[in-house]
Simulated scan of single mutants.
Amino acid sequence: MFSPEKFNLGNAFKQYFEIIPAFSNALKEEVYRIRHQVYCEDLEFESIRPDRREIDEHDINSLHLLMRSVKTEEFVGCTRIVRSRPGDPQYKLPFENTCAAVLDRSIVDPTKLPRDNIAEVSRLAVVTGYRRRKGEENSPVSISSEDFGTPSQSRFPFIPIGLYLATTELARLNGIDTVFVLTEERLANHFAKLGFSHKYIGSPIEHHGVRVPSMMSVSGTIKSMRSNLRPLYDVIAADIKRNLPETGNGLPGIENEHSEIRPRVTIAVNPAT
């Protein structure tokens, strides 16, 4: 297991990765490119697009995040936070349509929540070279017990956990306190064990494999975060703050079409490093 007494997760993370909020059009193109590679080419969940961009109607009102390799400057993963649409009370988050028949509305009824502080985390994807392990061929991202290493060999799944911590911070910055996720039960259970404020809200459903809808409290996750995750969260929060576009008020939301994108290199490495 990864030992917090011996290793600082934040220091380890910043040796390998950096979180980049994708607010510019150029950076969003990198998001759509990764998603096409993973969802259309690798997994064949979606059809191949002529322009090699996986994009849908929810992207226009989403907050996007990228993870970049420090050593190669390659973008290795992405995810998004789908927000409600101001002035459109009829608009539903993707999971509200997909899971309409399986949601337990005695636990939560999304239609009765303030729409401006709920969102859905979706389209989490990791490029092939960083998830090329047995059992990951049919999943855009995965966590297993072996990702946490052994007493003699420390490991940690920086990519998926880093992306989820990044969505937590970006959601906080945008006043979002409840996020919904539709994901594999195994992945959700690992996040719950790590201290994410997680609750199942419905029955499993077939959606590119068996998925379970759940919800997480942003403030609850931050408040109850385990001590060994706090340095990692702080480093990721600093990345987001440093890479936000200039808005005049310190908050994200203004596109800068001239944001720099560094050269991209493709290599295959151990996904747990």
Rank of each mutant, 00 (worst) to 15 (best):
I236C: 08
K223W: 00
L194I: 09
V235G: 05
S106F: 13
T167F: 11
I222T: 09
G195P: 00
R80G: 00
V127R: 15
L9W: 12
N138M: 07
V181I: 06
R264A: 05
N228F: 14
F75Q: 01
S122P: 05
N61C: 06
Y32F: 03
E57R: 13
E41P: 04
S214V: 14
T178V: 13
L124K: 03
E29K: 05
D177C: 11
L124N: 04
I161Y: 00
L173C: 09
T98R: 07
V235P: 03
S139H: 14
A237R: 13
H190F: 10
H208R: 13
R68E: 00
E257N: 15
N25T: 08
Q37L: 15
V70C: 03
V38P: 01
Y130N: 12
T98Y: 13
I159Y: 11
F7K: 05
E146M: 11
L27C: 01
H258G: 02
A238K: 15
E246I: 15
V235N: 09
L173A: 07
K14C: 00
S197V: 13
I81Q: 03
P21R: 10
A12H: 11
E41K: 11
L93N: 10
R186V: 14
F17L: 04
I81Y: 02
D56T: 11
M67S: 08
F191E: 04
F148Q: 10
G253W: 02
V265P: 04
E185D: 04
A171R: 09
S152E: 10
V181F: 07
D104L: 12
P204R: 15
V179D: 04
S219V: 10
I240M: 05
R226Y: 04
M216V: 04
G253A: 02
V70Y: 01
T72F: 06
P4N: 05
V126H: 14
F45I: 06
E41C: 14
V212E: 03
R68Y: 02
E57D: 15
P151I: 10
L182A: 08
I205R: 03
S214A: 07
E30H: 04
V210W: 06
L173R: 02
N256S: 10
P160I: 10
P4K: 03
G202S: 06
I267E: 15
T72N: 06
N174K: 11
N25M: 02
Y16H: 08
V179T: 15
R226W: 05
G162K: 05
T273D: 10
E29Y: 06
R242W: 02
F95H: 07
Q153S: 03
G209E: 07
I55E: 03
L194M: 10
R115T: 14
F95N: 05
P50K: 14
M215L: 11
L65F: 02
